[in-house]
């Protein structure tokens, strides 16, 4: 592999990884979580989900890759919308899909920038010690930002009276999305470590 192609791979790999993980997380929401939620809350499920795993990907992508992650998240969001939509052709003609996808892709980075305003540069590799609690705090801030964005953008299509419910559904779904994703990743790493330790002993 030449130097140029190696460099191209090195810069493209994280973006491809973010896109793949983002589409995968959207898939879990579209195929598993949303259908269950639709049984109980059919009127808001089209706008928000009470357990929204892609928000966890947004926060972690922003943590490690900062502003450039917005491009990967936006691309992943549009691809996921097409893959899991029943009418992808009409979906791409809807400007609202692009607007909500772009706004959602920004939320992770905006939360990190908000923390920077208070003197806490929490982006990875900037010298500030990061722990999981701080990531959850950033996740909560980005949930608020996303709830505001989505409520404003969707205000024209939400049934009057459901606005507050959608706001809280987005907020709760995003926070739980970050917490559950981190917990699942923790168990995944733990399982991997245990397996490694067990194989060393056998």
């Amino acid at each position: 592999m030449g130097d140029l192609s190696r460099a191209a791979y090195k810069s493209a790999a994280p973006f491809l990884l973010i896109i793949i993980l983002y589409i995968f997380a959207h898939g879990i929401v579209a195929l598993v979580i949303a259908p269950i939620q639709a049984i109980y809350f059919p009127e808001i499920t089209v706008f928000a989900c009470f357990l929204y795993l892609p928000h966890g990907i947004r926060v972690l992508a922003a943590l490690f890759y900062g502003w450039p992650s917005v491009i990967a998240l936006f691309a992943g969001n549009i691809i996921a919308a097409c893959v899991f939509s029943t009418d992808p052709q009409n979906l791409l003609l809807d400007g609202l899909v692009f607007a909500t996808a772009f706004a959602a892709s920004l939320t992770g980075v905006l939360a990190f920038e908000f923390m920077r305003l208070f003197g806490m540069n929490l982006y990875a590799g900037r010298g500030t010690p990061i722990n999981w609690k701080l990531i959850l705090v950033v996740g909560a801030i980005s949930s608020v930002i996303n709830s505001v964005f989505q409520s404003l953008l969707l205000s024209g299509v939400i049934i009057p009276g459901d606005g507050l419910l959608v706001f809280f559904a987005v907020f709760i779904g995003d926070i739980l999305g970050v917490a559950v994703l981190m917990f699942v990743l923790m168990l995944g790493f733990r399982w991997y470590r245990m397996r490694e330790e067990a194989s060393k002993l056998s």
Binding site: L17, M186, F189
Partner: peptide, 29 residues
Amino acid sequence: MDQFRAFFQLRSILLEMEQDLGLDKLAQS
């Protein structure tokens, strides 16, 4: 940040989470 550094940093954060939640202090069974 390249993906390997990101991976190891994430692993370190989640290991701390595991310790804080006390999962590492229980017996394996």
